[in-house]
Every structure is written in C-alpha cells, then in structure tokens.
Design a protein around this nucleic acid. Structure first.
Length: 188
DNA sequence: CCCTGATTCGC
DNA sequence: GCGAATCAGG
C-alpha cells in the first residue's frame, strides 16, 4: 500500500481527531501503526495534545535554533483537559437495596450522580462481557470496577483489560471520569 | 502484559 | 519517502 492522497486525508483526519496510530492503521489497512506514525512525522504532524509519547518529544536536545514567531496567542489549548474524577464506584445491584455494614452516618452520599446515558449504556453492555473476577484476580491491567453487592456473593470486578494507565477499562473510565460540563450542577 | 507515540536507520 | 526495529513510558 502506498500513501495516496485519500489515505493521507484519512490519516490527517483521524490523527486530528485524536485516534491512536494503531486505530488509524487498522482503518487504513495494509499498514502498521509504525507506518502511520512514521508518516505522521514526515507530514510534520506529530505532537498532539498530551500523549504517552509527549515525554519522548520533550527529552529533546534541540541543537537547532528554534524559529520563534511572535505569535500573540502562543499555546493553543484545544482541550483544557476538563476532567474531574467522579467517585462513583457505587455498587449497584438490580432490584436490591445496598446493605451498609454498621449504621453509620453515611453522609457524603457522594452525590446521586447523573452519569451520561450513553456512558451508562456502554457500561451495561460491557458489563455482560465482564470477566467477573474476584478480588484476588485483580492485577495492574484488569478493570477494577466493582459490580454487584459487596455484601453478597453477587459481587465481582469487571476484570476487562484496562486502558493505558487507568484503573478501569475504557467503558468504566468513561463513567468514572466525567467532563465537568456534564456533571455540572444539578440545579435545585 | 497491554497499550501509546517517538526516533533511528537501512532500504 | 518508507516503515520495522527499537526506544521510552503509562
């Protein structure tokens, strides 16, 4: 396969959308993620906002003079990274009331979170696919999202492969880390 | 171990 | 120009 205009288009588009190199490679077909990354470099794209490889680019020695333009607005921040950790691992079980061990204050009902419907739907789907692993099976790369009622046998951990560094799988990361816009005030 | 992107270098 | 191998990191 060669880099035709079309394929480069797709590459640019997807890269711009923040798709990973491997995803782009998969989409294009006939190329590896290395090929994609190589092309991205040659095209002069490369550093997107925040990524695992950002540090690699940062380690730079830069023996070359930097062409600085008196840009009034230097750092363009597409994404302020508006994320706030949501506390939700609230074990939920269909049709049963959660049992709390000792009658405790239980005050900070962390907030009756309103998770985005899509995220919830996503979770419900992957929940079916969960490995239903026990506490002992948890590893550094298994989703640690709790499912069910911890007070019963009806409890397990998602166990799906986690996504880059996060403690949860992709779907659960989605519900755990809500954009602050969506978890903004639930007025009144 | 899974994944990510970055860089190098023979082709 | 290309991309596999390698590197560096989460």
């Amino acid at each position: 396969m060669s880099w035709t205009d079309e394929r480069v288009e797709i590459l640019k588009k997807m890269w711009g959308e923040g798709q990973s190199a491997s995803q782009i490679a998969k989409e294009l077909g006939g190329v590896t993620r290395n090929a994609v990354i190589g092309k991205v470099h040659r095209l002069g794209l490369s550093n997107r906002a925040g990524s695992a490889g950002a540090k690699a680019a940062a380690k730079e020695k830069a023996p070359k003079a930097e062409a600085k333009k008196p840009a009034p607005a230097p750092a363009a921040k597409p994404q302020p990274k508006t994320e706030s950790a949501a506390p939700p691992p609230q074990p939920k079980v269909a049709g049963r009331r959660a049992i709390i061990p000792a009658g405790q204050p239980l005050p900070p009902q962390p907030s009756a979170n309103e998770i985005s419907p899509e995220a919830l739907a996503k979770v419900n789907e992957i929940e079916k696919k969960s490995k239903k692993i026990g506490l002992m099976e948890l590893t550094e790369r298994t989703c640690k999202w709790p499912v069910g009622d911890p007070a019963t046998e009806d409890f397990w951990f998602c166990g799906l492969p986690v996504k880059a560094g996060k403690p949860y799988c992709e779907a659960h990361v989605g519900v755990a880390f809500q954009p602050m816009s969506s978890r903004r005030d639930r007025r009144r």
